[in-house]
Design a binder for these strands. Structure first.
Lengths: 206, 206
DNA sequence: CGCAAGTGTACGACCGATCGTCTATGCCGA
DNA sequence: TCGGCATAGACGATCGGTCGTACACTTGCG
């Protein structure tokens, strides 16, 4: 018997945009079903629980975003160029989202991290895996750039973590002010984070 | 005059730690009252609504944090030294919170920003004011450092925003991994963000 | 000084709505 | 007719919020 209903996909799609827009806890199953045009009674046929839906949304969206990131970061170009393109595409994506729904919804992974990582262990674990992979993807590019002598960082992993942290922090601001303008600083800041430190830091050590 | 009660303060205290721990939407008024040891019926005598409580918690916590920041940032020391102390104290505060409740609760402002800034306009406005002030306080120190020739940034305001963004991003990671270790990178990253950019960026411009 | 009226504080019970979840059953293709 | 996909409806619990009232304390009159 093949599947005869696309209800699961409709729920996933609706849940994705609603969670992005309104978060997880403030969202009801009934509201998701209504937005998806699926009877509420069907929800628990397709998903074990509301939490299972959240995990499915995370998986689906991460799979899409990961392939986007991979496409950009594994291009045939200079490593730093690829990194720059990543920021440009991220910024463009957030702008597009703002255009379509009037509001900067931010990064769904960051949003759910701050909302749920201390609430449910399964979601925290999934988010950890996602950010681990994000950092690792950036790490590889930074390491490549370092081999070519384009950046001079000690610990590429830590540098990658800082770059992703900067990204999440700026996206937080973009959401708070509903303004994508400051995201333009991302690339410059990334370059700064990857620059060799000036050695006069001893002047301000305690 | 009628009876006096410390219920309002008890509610504020309990709400503060519970919101920090579990967020806003997932939290019920009844749960807050139970933790505070205050009858639920009293809640709406002291607060107009759950949202008004959240605003009061934000105000109270920001007032405390702002005086902490002011104390550190207006010390009689080199500007960069003061900035460094700010990070050290922030890290220490997060560590202390982790010790006391077993979990890194992160920054309550960042948490509520991602959870609520697209939900309720009053809370968004308050959070905007808070982060505006945070950025401004950092801005002043950076400007001072620039006057002394210790950093070479173009737009001190934008630099301050990036520093605060880096802070929020790293705190997000600390919460996600329940690990304050990586917060040690904050000071180095701050220095990087405030360093003059190497001028070979043209090599990777598109 | 004593005591009741008046005033504002504090609170338990309860509201309709909605929460996430489940079970009994309809329905359709094979 | 049969089997399993899909659904309607309702479950108990909890949601944010309201309301009537008992209490504590001041005040003013006798």
């Amino acid at each position: 018997m093949g599947r005869t209903s696309d209800a699961r996909e409709k729920i996933l799609t609706a849940a994705h945009s609603l969670i992005e827009l309104r978060g997880y806890s403030a969202l009801g199953v009934a509201e998701i079903c209504k937005a998806a045009g699926v009877p509420k009674g069907s929800f628990y046929y397709f998903f074990e629980s509301k939490e299972a839906l959240a995990l499915a949304v995370l998986d689906e969206h991460w799979e899409a975003q990961r392939s986007d990131w991979a496409r950009v970061l594994e291009e045939d170009a200079q490593p730093l160029s690829r990194l720059r393109r990543l920021f440009e595409e991220t910024e463009a994506g957030l702008r597009a989202g703002q255009q379509s729904c009037g509001t900067v919804s931010g990064c769904i992974f960051g949003n759910l991290t701050l909302e749920l990582s201390n609430q449910t262990e399964p979601i925290r674990e999934r988010l950890q895996q996602i950010f681990d992979t994000q950092v690792e993807m950036v790490d590889k590019v930074i390491a490549e750039a370092r081999e070519r002598g384009e950046v001079a960082v000690g610990d590429t992993r830590e540098a990658a973590r800082s770059v992703v942290a900067q990204l999440e922090g700026q996206v937080l601001f973009a959401k708070l002010y509903n303004n994508t303008q400051h995201l333009e600083a991302l690339w410059d800041n990334c370059l700064s984070l990857l620059s060799a430190r000036r050695t006069d830091t001893a002047a301000v050590s305690s």
